[in-house]
Design a protein around this nucleic acid. Structure first.
Lengths: 359, 359
DNA sequence: CTTGACATGGCAAACGTTTGCCGTTACAAT
DNA sequence: ATTGTAACGGCAAACGTTTGCCATGTCAAG
């Protein structure tokens, strides 16, 4: 039922070849007048190119696959949006595959992607993984987005966790805190190591002594933040500030402080990491370092398009930095929370602001 | 580079026609022995059908488009997952289009979908909209998912908000509350009207008098819940329970109660709606009615596949019911919060549990 | 022995594009 | 007048499938 190139060409009194060239802006010259005639005719007739047929012929589909390990995650959708917004400008399309870390489904999905002859892939993984899946698609350009693992590899986007942790500790030190405790992530995650390193770096920068008594390892969950903070607050010389490696653990630390009869931030200052929605809704709201998901998505799309169009073999590894968002849990000296602080978490503006790109 | 049907056929010593029929399970008979030979050969040679070519020939792509107005929303990803999980079982694929309610981008996206000759569309919209976009794709099977608008239309999935609100008020009445206030959503949304109706229905059921003094209209945001609750609590005969039409306003109500020196739930019980993550993280955790996004996604996919495969003209409208999740803000008599309550919000199990389907 | 039905398999057209190759014309340079 | 170059346009092949149609062989019923 849809109008084809043949019909369009016949209506314009030209061959399909000419019509095709007029529409695609081919390098082959075509008379400007006829070109315009074809274009306007295409408009009026409502011609829409059959992308399936085009894909079959050109073996390029202007489609990239996005493989994510969980679309139900506070971070993934933002990354996806970053990717899609960037792709859109270049008239690329994306197909999202949600694997849920199920290898069987993943390999089936990859087969599907191959069958659809997508042009490239962005792989959004929160965990490290073997390279098995990658091999299958090795012939296609491939870009990684790693939220919790840093990769020195080329063709990858990751986060400068060290820098982010420095930001947090800097802030606390600047407020005058000298005993700053740290609740880290579990072992085996690069993010845990890097944020710990950032914590240490910042301490050194401020000539503060690193003490193992002020560091505990959590598991990203609220309870672990709660337990760790309770431990710190029972010490003879309790810390005046706690930096947690994510917002959930920071919230746990706040609850523990409150249970101990301490006021946040007057008695204990707390800083989190990630800038999840909860950080803007809790009481007090949580000072935190943003995880620049949107920018990461954009950067990965940019990398992939470079790979596709400039025929470069590989792109550099991109590392993105978050920024500090100061809220009540660290700063505001008055105890009472101005109501205006409870703003919507993610407005379009917010997506882009607060995130800076490096590399 | 990938192995084609021709190569496979030649290797098996048959024609492409036979190979095709062996692989696709065509109705045309093919000798069982040769069929097996072809299948195993396909396996060893790593043959993957070119879905582009197949799509060109058959004009069916086993792909459905998912058009969402915002992928950055606490609800959309869960709906998407419901859709994709269901589609996956039937070897369908999906393409997600994020419109951000930008009509220009939306129409471009729809053109793209047409060009890709997708088989059908699931439209996930949180707001009501004109049918303009729909017309363009009218030739394709189309299913709506409406989270905040109910549609009597066929080919649509929506929520039984009336029922959900009843659930909440029932719960409060059962706990002995007789003055139950209501913070509603803004006008113009079906969800607001339906939840209000449910509130009234439940009151009637319990022989409780409806009073306009106990109802205020919020705007879904935390502040409005805060302001509304403060208003209620200043009344000479303050309510002992507050039902808010979403979790954010419920949280605002909790904050207002706490500011007024009242304990939740001992002095004021609060129930929300939606079961967003915050409801499981706040202090106290919030009793709420689930918005069964995952089930809605599944149901819409089922509807669409019915449309595609059974050649039915239309499917019935499906209405899905949420369930009540009792947490501390309404029930727990003791003031202190057991730490175990702070569990991960969305585990795979959770996706399916707590949601019941009707119709 | 004839006929019809069925199992099996191949030929080739078709799906709607893009593009290499060739032909024609116009025009400038020699 | 001849040649070279560029602009313009058409023909037809190709991309990898699926499928209508036809051909052959087999076998059972008449």
């Amino acid at each position: 039922m849809p109008v084809t190139l043949h019909e369009l060409a016949r209506a314009a009194g030209v061959s399909v070849a000419t019509a095709s060239r007029a529409l695609t802006g081919s390098s082959h010259p075509v008379n400007e007048a006829t070109k315009q005639r074809i274009l306007t005719l295409a408009e009026t007739m409502g011609y829409k190119p059959n992308l399936i047929a085009r894909g079959l012929r050109t073996e390029r589909t202007a489609t990239v696959g996005i493989i994510v390990d969980s679309i139900v995650s506070p971070f993934t959708p933002l990354i996806i949006r970053g990717i899609q917004d960037y792709l859109q400008e270049y008239h690329y399309f994306s197909v999202i595959i949600n694997t849920d870390r199920d290898p069987a489904f993943e390999s089936r999905a990859i087969d599907d992607l191959i069958g659809r002859s997508i042009d490239g892939v962005v792989h959004v993984e929160s965990r490290m993984r073997g390279a098995n899946a990658v091999l299958d698609l090795a012939s296609k350009p491939y870009v990684f987005v790693h939220r919790l693992f840093s990769r020195d590899d080329r063709n990858s986007v990751s986060v400068d966790d060290n820098y982010g942790a420095c930001l947090a500790v800097d802030h606390l030190a600047q407020l005058g805190h000298r005993r700053i405790a740290y609740i880290g992530g579990p072992g085996g995650w690069d993010a845990s190591a890097n944020r710990l390193a950032g914590y240490k770096d910042a301490l050194a920068k401020w000539d503060l002594e690193y003490s193992a008594d002020l560091v505990r390892e959590g598991n990203w969950e609220l309870q672990s933040g709660f337990a760790s903070a309770r431990y710190f607050l029972r010490e003879t010389q309790r810390p005046t500030a706690i930096f947690a490696a994510n917002d959930l653990m920071a919230l746990g630390a706040i609850y523990a402080s409150q249970d101990a009869g301490l006021h946040v931030p007057d008695d204990v200052a707390v800083v989190g990491y990630d800038d999840r929605e909860i950080a803007a809704l809790s009481r007090p709201t949580i000072t935190t370092v943003t995880l620049p998901c949107y920018s990461m998505g954009q950067a990965s799309a940019r990398l992939l398009l470079d790979l596709l169009n400039k025929n470069t073999e590989s792109s550099p590894a991109v590392v993105i930095r978050g920024t500090l968002i100061v809220r009540e849990s660290s700063g505001d000296p008055a105890g009472r929370i101005p109501l205006e602080h409870y703003r919507s978490h993610t407005t379009p503006q917010r997506l882009l602001a607060d995130e800076s790109v490096k590399g």
